[in-house]
Amino acid sequence: MTRSYALFLGCYIPSMQPFAEASLRRIAPPLKMKLIDMEGATCCPVPEIVRLADHDAWLYVSARNLALAESLGKDILAVCNGCWETLYEAREAIVNDTQLMNEVNSHLNLLDKTFEGKVKVKHFLEVMVEDIGLESLKKAIKQPLSKLNVAVQYGCKLYKSPDSKFVSYFDSIIESLGVNAIDYGAEKICCGFPLSLYSLDEAMEERAKFKLDKMQSAKVDCMVTACPGCFDVLEKAQLLLKRQGLQYEIPMLSLTELIALSFGFKPQEIGVDKHRVKTKTLITKLGMGGN
């Protein structure tokens, strides 16, 4: 059975990490997923900044995104932890408060939009485990990556899911793919994005550098994350710390890329070779160098 979702890309995936989008679009057909683009979708908006600066602005803009999905009549597939948090929490707030729903709709109506809470918000991990199922995932694997040692970067928001279930979902997907998740001792630690709002230097030094050091001493082949925010910060950290003479070069993969690789897609097809942090060592290790 093919399942359709309203695809919510967010900001960082389409603009900074097109390889994550490309790999997601490649793995959708084998997993019997139909992704419907949400034309005109905007930033979710980012919870750490907009919600703090002005709760109303955060709520209205996210309600607009929810309304777009409702007009498509499909549940939202959020590929980003931050987008999931915003859309999920905004939806919960609106659906559980009739007065708030009326207020939000009075603003949306000016744009000829309306949100009545008919669609749900689902995280990519949730869709993979609860809707698609790990069995279907295993069946689609063409190239087991059992040689690969990965460091997992969950991203804070996964712990916020009901009973922190997304954390175990991430683990079970990694397990199903057959790659070795290395225990590097700092999985839970934040990448440093919220701290960078206070001081970028501190975020890089105290969080990102700490994590990268741990990953390096654990000798991982690459790190894998489901959060474009973490991806962006840790990528930026590797490039910035290089200027201080610290060579990390830990290849980074988004979870969709890892899945696409195990489905037999070539790294060049999904853009693994187009990362800002070099991935050559990883591609060599996978034995996928040739075209």
């Binding site: 890309l9 389409p14 603009s15 989008e21 683009d37 949400m38 034309e39 005109g40 979708a41 905007t42 930033c43 907009v50 600066a53 002005d54 109303d56 602005a57 209205y60 803009v61 607009r64 603003h107 000016l110 744009l111």
Partner: peptide, 26 residues
């Protein structure tokens, strides 16, 4: 991308929504 990146109308809508809140002045 099939989002507000290629849709000036969507960009205007966000601006309109935010204009009704304190964020705009802040």
């Amino acid at each position: 991308p099939p989002t507000a990146y290629k849709d000036p109308n969507a960009q205007k809508e966000v601006e309109e929504l935010v204009r009704e809140t304190d964020l705009y002045d802040k």
